[in-house]
Amino acid sequence: MKNLIFLIIPILFIGCIKDDILSDTVDPVLRLTQKAEAIAIDESFQFEFIYLNNVGREESVAVTWSSSAPDVISISQEGLATALSTGNSTISIEYQDENGLLTDAFEVVVGDETVEVEETQEKSGQINTTSTYALSGDFTLTAEENNLVLVFDENYNASTALPGLYVYLTNNPSTISGALEIGKVETFSGAHSYSIADVDINEYSHILYFCKPFNVKVGDGEIQDN
């Protein structure tokens, strides 16, 4: 009997892996990504958009395209706009998902030449802790050819107590799911930078700091237009 007790005790208390539920819902985003501020008469321009769902992941959806002045600019349901006569028109997209109606719009002039809206070359922001570990600092995100350069200012500061602190680009600051891992944090104070290959400057909305061993978010910062 005594031996049986000795054997049973360990077996009774073996822990099992269960589930932790993370609240990771974000507002969906519908955004025109390729657009023209002017289209030359009788020319066409292909508009493009991106849809990020309620966890910040890009998803292919069918949107409704419209022109506020179809006699000035016509637009197909594939986003191909054609300038028909002089004037202005607002090109709009709409998508109804389970959370509501999403829209984006851009005003276009019919002119002498087609002028595509140039992509922002520099954005910036500020990271802040969302935990009780120290994390703060200003950053600048710059597009250089096909790469991004993420530069942190002198005022950057991060706790050295955390094991396995990583930095990400993400469209959902609650999770690393769908995020791009930039790398392990090796600098904990002062100016430093990361080079990120093959990423568009408009592709992600946030910088995320995440502790891998704890599987927990440490802080974030929204990437904002300058």
């Binding site: 822990g15 099992c16 892996i17 269960k18 589930d19 932790d20 539920i21 993370l22 609240s23 990771d24 819902t25 309620n54 966890v55 999770t175 690393i176 799911s177 599987n215």
Partner: peptide, 18 residues
């Protein structure tokens, strides 16, 4: 051990338990 980390929105496993 660590638990699975599950998306409360999609139900997908974000980080598998170990």
């Amino acid at each position: 051990f660590t638990n699975n980390l599950i998306s409360g929105t999609t139900g997908e496993t974000i980080v598998k338990g170990d």
